[in-house]
């Protein structure tokens, strides 16, 4: 293969990888603190992307011009909106289900995801159709033979890496992060240490949801398009990535995100048929991986969480 084309594939894989990693970290955080799988996570991502789009309509109507300012405002709106949504879900749907069979929580969040998705479709103006996502980052690209490096892609990637690094610093270096890790290991003993369990859980859900929103916005900026069911596939991919990495492990989730993107990219290159089959290839590979390593690539020791 031409080296330029290969570079293009690698770049695309990295872009997808960082987006998947951000979704996967959310799954792994939720599982870490409460031992639950939150299937509505992908649809929270959708809500985040549409919140950003609605905010865009709002700020342009107000006459805001600067693309950087607009980008900042809509990203903040998406983060704030989904963080509140995530905390509300945790407070009113998931916390009351503590002690219920895990399958009930799974079903509840599955239904919640459907409700969120359909709400976006019904209530967002003309929500059934794909929406153009505004190009707010500087256009332009550097060309190296068949390899085109879009500047906006570089910015999106760097932003994603910064967010992931920031989150892992928060988890590993801050007092709040210490509380999250303590709750993940042993919630009851964490309470005896004086940690407000509910506050930690709400914060974790707000954080994971905000990450999903950013992933949704980045996805929208990368493809210049969002639609009401974008979260379905992204959620499933993020979940798979978290599983590959070993659920409950942040670095595993990040690794899993990039691995899934690599699988998709390999699928797109290797399959002679349309690259539409890349997801089939990637999910099939994940199934094989899971059969080989049922607890994920970075196996979780019984006490190891977040």
């Amino acid at each position: 293969m031409d080296i330029g084309l290969a570079g293009q594939y690698v770049l695309n894989g990295l872009m997808l990888g960082i987006i998947y990693a951000m979704v996967a970290v959310g799954f792994t955080l939720f599982f870490g603190v409460l031992d639950i799988i939150k299937f509505s996570h992908g649809d929270v991502l959708t809500v985040g992307a549409f919140t950003a789009l609605a905010a865009y309509a709002g700020v342009t109507a107000l006459g805001l011009q600067s693309p950087w300012l607009i980008l900042g405002v809509i990203a903040l709106a998406a983060i704030a909106g989904t963080a509140v949504l995530g905390a509300l879900i945790a407070r009113f749907l998931i916390m009351p289900m503590r002690g219920a069979p895990p399958i009930n929580v799974l079903l509840l969040t599955l239904m919640l995801g459907t409700a969120l998705r359909e709400s976006v479709r019904l209530f967002y103006p003309n929500g059934s159709n794909p929406k153009m996502f505004p190009r707010l980052l500087p256009g332009g690209a550097a060309n190296f033979g068949r390899f085109t490096l879009r500047y906006d892609s570089v910015l999106i990637f760097v932003a994603g890496v910064a967010v992931i690094v920031g989150v892992s610093l928060l988890i590993n270096r801050s007092k709040l992060g210490l509380a999250i890790r303590a709750v993940a290991q042993d919630a009851e003993t964490a309470r005896v240490m004086g940690i407000d369990l509910e506050a930690v859980v709400l914060f974790t859900f707000a954080l994971g949801s905000a990450l999903a929103a950013l992933a949704g916005v980045m996805n929208g900026m990368y493809y210049s398009e969002i639609n009401f069911n974008m979260g379905l596939l992204l959620g499933l991919i993020g979940f798979s990535a978290a599983i590959i990495g070993g659920l409950g492990n942040i670095y595993g989730a990040i690794l899993g995100g990039f691995l899934f993107a690599a699988l998709q990219t390999i699928g797109a290159v290797l399959l002679p048929v349309s690259s539409a089959y890349k997801d089939v290839f990637a999910f099939a590979a994940v199934i094989v991986l899971m059969a080989w390593r049922p607890t994920g690539l970075i196996a979780e020791k019984s006490s190891e969480r977040v």
Binding site: R181, A182, Q185, T189, V192, G194, I195, D196, S303, R305
Partner: peptide
Amino acid sequence: DTHQIIRAGIACIPEGRKVFSRL
């Protein structure tokens, strides 16, 4: 709630030590 009781000035050395082994 437990964290408020701890704030009142009570602490516990729990049965079985219950250290956070991965910390």
